[in-house]
Design a protein around this nucleic acid. Structure first.
Lengths: 211, 211
DNA sequence: CCGGAGGGTGAGCAAGCGCTTAGCCTTGTC
DNA sequence: GACAAGGCTAAGCGCTTGCTCACCCTCCGG
């Protein structure tokens, strides 16, 4: 059967995880964590979904937390790559913001199970792993802030509160992972288009402001 | 010491919960659930925070899930009340949208521990309790949609995708509970003001659209 | 045909879980 | 001063949890 984690954007997920058994366990963990949350998921459940005995998990991962960390790390790397590719790409600030929001949102919708784990299970990580992930998120924030600052400098955007607006844009995109539902009527592409439009309106300079 | 749940907006939280011991347990549960999540919180932890023995919890609540349900119900009632008061209040659609977003966001920021439990632990509820809460959320959605539709009808707003924009506005506000931090530099009032401005820009009719 | 290595299992341990029970205080009533 | 009732605790039951350990396949070079 087709999983929610099938190839999207020509990107086959988790191909970097080897051997095969380790990948199957990791994919099973993503599904379980996304459905029930990290703490409500048992190692027996993960192993069962992967078609293995409970003990098999510990051949490939030292602890349940290591599984979460691996998922979180790979997911954040991918999300950050998507953002920075748009942020540092060609085009006007408006073009770059449109591309960044569109692709970031599309990823959060298409891979909403992964994104849910990545974005909402941060607190379950061990302190040193958490710190590592928080640094990646700081970089995401910087990427968005860069686009907005460039747009302000170019006179394309009107952003009275740069840090606050950066936060709001990222927050809006990230929360897609919470509500997006495959059974819903919207495709990831459509949500990406809608959100890109909304965000551009949020920051657009008004042609003739009332005075 | 002052708790994060001290009186705000002239509203002292949980005053509807009696007797005193039951309220202390409930407040302890809110703090614990918000910090660690429902599943990672033990009944011993809740009782301990309330200064009682583990068994004391079961005098006032049948199960741990009943505690979550009570918190979720009271929180959703309050959030919905805030939203509908603005939505059905006086003033232009723009005024009402400003008031709705401002107060809804302020509540999510000021009571971010409660809001976190209310918004992010929905899946831990028993099916029948979950259904009850989902219905309240449907009403929140309807309230925001009403304002937007009124604004469009009045020619004040330009909203190509009404359901999608409604979802985005609510999502933006709700996610405040995830990132808001008392130690941060923004007050709930400031965040409310910022967000009201951003949302109004998202839906404002453009005075002279390019054609 | 041997033997070691890597991937896998069944059984189970120690700890922690939600929740219960028997009994003890305090309080208010007559 | 007897006594019922409600609020609370110490102890612990039955179960599940993350994780381990002794052992067993299958593969493969010599």
């Amino acid at each position: 059967m087709g999983s929610a984690e099938d190839a999207v954007d020509g990107y086959r997920p988790w191909s970097e995880v080897t051997p095969d058994a380790a990948r199957r366990l990791l994919v099973a963990a993503v599904e379980a964590f996304a459905e029930r949350g990290y703490h409500a998921t048992t190692t027996r459940d993960i192993a069962g979904r992967a078609g293995m005995s409970p003990a098999a998990l510990y051949i490939h991962y030292k602890t349940k937390e290591e599984l979460l960390h691996r998922i979180s790390r790979i997911g954040h790397d991918k999300a950050l790559e998507i953002l920075t590719t748009s942020a540092d790409g060609p085009g006007s600030p408006a073009d770059r913001l449109d591309a960044a929001v569109r692709s970031f949102v599309r990823w959060h919708a298409a891979h909403h199970t992964t994104a849910r784990v990545v974005q909402y299970e941060l607190d379950a990580l061990a302190p040193e792993h958490r710190a590592e992930i928080v640094e990646l998120r700081r970089q995401s924030d910087a990427a968005v802030r860069r686009i907005l600052a460039d747009g302000v400098a170019a006179g394309e955007f009107d952003v009275p509160d740069l840090p606050g607006t950066t936060l709001a844009v990222l927050s809006l995109c990230i929360d897609v992972a919470r509500w997006f539902n495959v059974a819903g009527q919207r495709t990831p592409d459509e949500v990406g288009g809608l959100y890109a439009d909304l965000v551009l309106r949020m920051v657009a300079a008004r042609p003739a402001p009332a005075r």
